[in-house]
C-alpha cells in the first residue's frame, strides 16, 4: 500500500509487510492508501485488483518448456554475468509499487524486469521477439500508461529492480518490430 504518499512507505528496499513502526515517531499520523492506477481497480479498502499483471505474464512472460522435454541442465552453461543480471531482474515480486509510483501509471519496470530476466538466458532466446511484442501489446491494452523516464518506479521498487530493464525492454521491442517488418 501507499504510506505517507510513498508506495511501501519511507524505507528503502522494504515492502510494507517488512516495515516496522519503529521507523515512525510516537504520535505521528500515518496516511495509508491503496496502490492507485488506472489499471488497478480498488476491490475494497486497501485491496486492489492486480490481475492485469497476470495477464501480461500470460501473454508471453515464460519459456515454453513442456514438462518432461527438458535437456540435461548442464548442457547449456550460462555465463555468470548473464545469470546474475537475469537473477536481479527475476527478483521482481509483482507488487505493483512501480505502477503506483508512476505519474503515467505505467508498468514498464515490471514488464522490463520479465523481458530482461528471460532475455538474458539462452533458454529465453527462441521466443524473445514474440514475447516482447505480445507483452507490450497486453500492457497497453490493460490500460497501463507509457513510460516517460521519470524514474519514480525504480525509487519505489522494494526489490531494487534497476531502471536499465526499461532500456532493455525498449531495445528488445525496437529490435522485434524492426525485425518483423
Amino acid at each position: 500500500m501507499v504510506i505517507n504518499g510513498e508506495p511501501h512507505g519511507p524505507q528503502k528496499a522494504t515492502t510494507t509487510c517488512q516495515l516496522h513502526l519503529r521507523h515512525f515517531s510516537d504520535g505521528e499520523t500515518i496516511t495509508v492508501e491503496p496502490f492507485r492506477a488506472a489499471a488497478f481497480g480498488v476491490v475494497k479498502d486497501l485491496v486492489v485488483d492486480r490481475g492485469a499483471f497476470d495477464r501480461i505474464i500470460a501473454a508471453g512472460g515464460y519459456v515454453s518448456a513442456p514438462t518432461g522435454a527438458a535437456p540435461e541442465a548442464h548442457a547449456t552453461p550460462v555465463p555468470k554475468r548473464n545469470a546474475d543480471r537475469a537473477f536481479t531482474a527475476a527478483a521482481c515480486i509483482g507488487c505493483g509499487a512501480c505502477v503506483a509510483a508512476c505519474p503515467n501509471g505505467s508498468a514498464s519496470l515490471f514488464l522490463g524486469a520479465k523481458i530482461t530476466h528471460l532475455g538474458e538466458l539462452p533458454q529465453g532466446q527462441p521466443e524473445r521477439s514474440d514475447r516482447v511484442i505480445r507483452m507490450v501489446k497486453t500492457h497497453d491494452a490493460e490500460g497501463f500508461g507509457g513510460c516517460t523516464n521519470t524514474g519514480e518506479c525504480a525509487v519505489a521498487c522494494p526489490k531494487e529492480i534497476p531502471l536499465d530493464v526499461i532500456s532493455q525492454l525498449n531495445r528488445d521491442y525496437l529490435a522485434a518490430v524492426t525485425h518483423r517488418r
Binding site: Y62, V63, A65, T67, G68, A69, A70, P71, E72, A73, H74, T76, P77, V78, P79, K80, A83, A86, F87, A90, H117, L118, L121, Q123, G124
Partner: peptide, 18 residues
C-alpha cells in the same frame, strides 16, 4: 533440468555451471 529449461535463474559459478 525442467526448471533450468523454464529459465529459473539458479546460482551459477564463474564457468557458467550450476
Amino acid at each position: 533440468d525442467q526448471c533450468v529449461a523454464q529459465g529459473v535463474p539458479f546460482a551459477r559459478e564463474y564457468g557458467g555451471l550450476l
